[in-house]
Simulated scan of single mutants.
Amino acid sequence: MTSVPPPENSQPVPPVTPPPSYQQPAYQQPAYQQPVYQQPGAYPAAQAYVQPYAGVPAGYPGYGAGYAAAPKSKVLGVVAMYGAIVVLVLSVIASIVVGNSVGPIADRSSTGFSYSTSTMTAEQAAAFGGTALLILAQLAGGTVIGLWALIQGIIAAATKRGRAYGVIAIVVAAAAPIISFIVYIAAIAASTPA
């Protein structure tokens, strides 16, 4: 190996001395003595367990008994039930009105009913405009309020906050569209010209 000569204008580098080492003072741990245990010659006789109290004071529950839970409010189930009943009644009324409005412009065949808005006269179209809004309100409003009553009835039944009313709300909200459709078809059948 060849050594590289230092540059011509370089100054000598002073030697590097390591920093002084840090000496941690030595600590002495105190000496601990093991306690000496002596075995007794005979063990004392076992004593029977004595309850610290003769009885539980009046008005306080006994050991392990909890306080009676406050009864839950039935308002959630009642509101759901009334909401479902309102949806059912309004939906049936709307089905009767819509069915009686659609019936006169419907064509009866041996297999069912059919109607087309393209063959309506101007008077029929004007009369059907209000019915179309009622159909929209029945579908949108009945769906939203009916689903709300159904979900609130489920929550009321599951959380025991008016369980019986919640079950009634579930049944009525689920049956409302079926009953409404049956009434709608019956109203069309009754009002369609032969």
Rank of each mutant, 00 (worst) to 15 (best):
Thr2Lys: 13
Pro7Arg: 11
Ser10Gly: 15
Val16Thr: 14
Pro19Glu: 05
Pro20Phe: 09
Pro20Ser: 07
Ala26Glu: 15
Pro30Cys: 02
Gln34His: 07
Val36Thr: 14
Gln39His: 09
Ala45Ser: 14
Tyr49Gly: 09
Val50Ser: 14
Pro52Glu: 09
Pro57Tyr: 06
Tyr60Cys: 04
Pro61Ile: 07
Gly64Leu: 05
Gly66Pro: 13
Ser73Pro: 08
Lys74Gly: 15
Gly77Thr: 03
Ala80Leu: 00
Met81Gln: 11
Val86Pro: 03
Val86Trp: 09
Ala94Leu: 05
Val98Gln: 04
Gly99Tyr: 04
Asn100Gln: 15
Ser101Tyr: 12
Ile105Trp: 00
Gly112Cys: 02
Ser114Glu: 13
Ser114Gln: 14
Ala122Gly: 01
Glu123His: 12
Gln124Ile: 00
Gln124Asn: 07
Ala126Pro: 10
Ala126His: 02
Gly129Ile: 10
Gly129His: 14
Leu133Gln: 15
Leu136Asn: 12
Leu136Met: 12
Gln138Lys: 05
Leu139Gln: 15
Leu139Trp: 12
Leu147Asn: 07
Leu150Pro: 02
Ala158Ile: 03
Ala158Gly: 10
Thr159Pro: 02
Thr159Val: 02
Ala164Ser: 10
Tyr165Asn: 15
Ile170Pro: 13
Ile170Arg: 03
Ile178Lys: 11
Ile182Gln: 06
Ile182Gly: 11
Ala189Glu: 06
Ser191Arg: 01
Thr192Asn: 06
